[in-house]
C-alpha cells in the first residue's frame, strides 16, 4: 500500500524573543489511504505545529528547517505557494479545536459553505446550493435549510463542528487533519462527532489525521497511533498493539495517568517533571530527564525508531531499552 501522506524527519523552529524554540525535532509518521491515524501527546509536544507545517500555514516566525512532507508522492516543502493554494482545501482540509472561533461570525453558515464549494468547483449557483444542502445532510445536521440561513452563534458547539466538517468536505479533500476536534465539546457530543468521522472515512473514503491528547479518543477511533514527545514520535503502531503492549516508558506513563474505576480512592498517577519548553535541544533521549527507567546511554545517544518486538515492523518504538546493543 502506498502512503497518502508521509512526514519524514520534520524539523520546525520558531524564532521568539526568548530565543529559538525547537517545536518539532525529527518527527516521522505516515497516513495510509482510508486510514484514521492518531497523533497523541501532551500540549506542547509539537503535534499541532506539525500539522500547520504540513499545510504550510505556520505563523510568520515559524520555519521548517529540515525534513520531507510527501503528499501523494509530492514534497510539499518544495512546493510553491501557488501549488500549496491548490492543495489546501482541495486535497487536504483541516478542522480545529474550537469550532465557535473557526467559523466567521458575520456570515451565514450557508454563505460560508457555498463560498468554498464555488471556489473549488466553479459550479453554478443552483448546483452549489444543492451541494451545500447535501453536505449538511451528510454530516447529519437536522433541517439543513434552516442551518444554511443561521449564523454560527445561533448553533451549538456540536452543530458548529459538524458545519466545519461539512466545509472540510465541501472541497472534496482526501485528507482531513482534525486538530483536537472534540476537546471543546461535551462528552456526549464528542462521541457523536467521532462517530461521524469514522463513518465519513467509510463512506467518503476520507483519510484522517486525528490530533488529540485523549487516549480514549484514540482507542475509539484510530487504526494506528503515533505518540509524540518533544517534537518526535517515540512510539508508533496499530492502536490495539500500542495501547495494549506499549513499550515506551512515556506511553506507559500516559496510560497509567488515565483515571480508571479500578483505582478508585487512590491518588492519580502522573509523570513527574514537565514537558520541555523547546528552548534547548535535550541531548540523548528527550524523555530521559523524566524517565523512570533511565540508563546511562539515554544521556548521550538519541534512540531511533525500531521494531518494538523482533520481526514485527508495524509497531515501532524509540527507546534504548529495546535496542539489541543495549540488551547485550
Amino acid at each position: 500500500m502506498t502512503e497518502l501522506l508521509t512526514v519524514e524527519n520534520l524539523h520546525v523552529v520558531f524564532q521568539t524573543y526568548a530565543g529559538t524554540v525547537y517545536a518539532v525535532n525529527g518527527m516521522t509518521f505516515d497516513v495510509q489511504p482510508g486510514e484514521i491515524f492518531g497523533l497523541v501527546g501532551e500540549s506542547g509536544c509539537g503535534k499541532s505545529v506539525a500539522c500547520l507545517a504540513i499545510l504550510r500555514i505556520l505563523p510568520g516566525h515559524g520555519r521548517i528547517t529540515a525534513g520531507r512532507i510527501l503528499f501523494d508522492g509530492r514534497d510539499l516543502i518544495q512546493a510553491r505557494e501557488s501549488e500549496m493554494q491548490a492543495i489546501r482545501g482541495r486535497q487536504i482540509a483541516m478542522i480545529f479545536q474550537d469550532p465557535s472561533t473557526s467559523l466567521n461570525p458575520v456570515f451565514t453558515v450557508g454563505s460560508q459553505i457555498k463560498r468554498i464549494i464555488r471556489h473549488h468547483t466553479r459550479a453554478s449557483r443552483k448546483v452549489t446550493e444543492q451541494r451545500a444542502l447535501e453536505l449538511l445532510e451528510e454530516v447529519a445536521l437536522p433541517d439543513p435549510l434552516r442551518i444554511m440561513q443561521a449564523y454560527p452563534h445561533e448553533l451549538s458547539g456540536g452543530m458548529q463542528q459538524r458545519v466545519m466538517i461539512a466545509m472540510a468536505l465541501a472541497s472534496g479533500a482526501r485528507l482531513l487533519i482534525a486538530d483536537e476536534p472534540t476537546t471543546a465539546l461535551d462528552v456526549t457530543i464528542q462521541d457523536q462527532i467521532l462517530e461521524l468521522l469514522v463513518e465519513l472515512r467509510r463512506h467518503v473514503g476520507l483519510s484522517i489525521l486525528l490530533i488529540t491528547h485523549n487516549l480514549g479518543v484514540v482507542a475509539e477511533t484510530c487504526d494506528r497511533v503515533g505518540v509524540a514527545y518533544a517534537g518526535q514520535i517515540v512510539e508508533i503502531g496499530p492502536t490495539s498493539e500500542v495501547l495494549r503492549r506499549m513499550k515506551h516508558p512515556y506511553t506507559q506513563g500516559l496510560l497509567a495517568a488515565l483515571p480508571s474505576a479500578q483505582q478508585k480512592g487512590k491518588d492519580l498517577l502522573s509523570i513527574s517533571g514537565n514537558v520541555p519548553n523547546g528552548l534547548s535541544v535535550i541531548p540523548g533521549c528527550p524523555f530521559h530527564p523524566r524517565c523512570p527507567r533511565v540508563m546511562e546511554v539515554c544521556w548521550q545517544t538519541p534512540p531511533r525508531l525500531a521494531a518494538a518486538n523482533p520481526g514485527e515492523m508495524q509497531h515501532q518504538v524509540a527507546c534504548h531499552l529495546y535496542s539489541p546493543e543495549v540488551a547485550q
Partner: peptide, 26 residues
Amino acid sequence: NEKYILAARVAGLPRRTILFVLALKN
C-alpha cells in the same frame, strides 16, 4: 489573527477574498 481566517486559508480560499470580504467585514 482570528481562527476563522486561518480556517479560510486552510480551505484554500484566495487571499483577495480573505482580506477584502472575510476579514474586512469583521
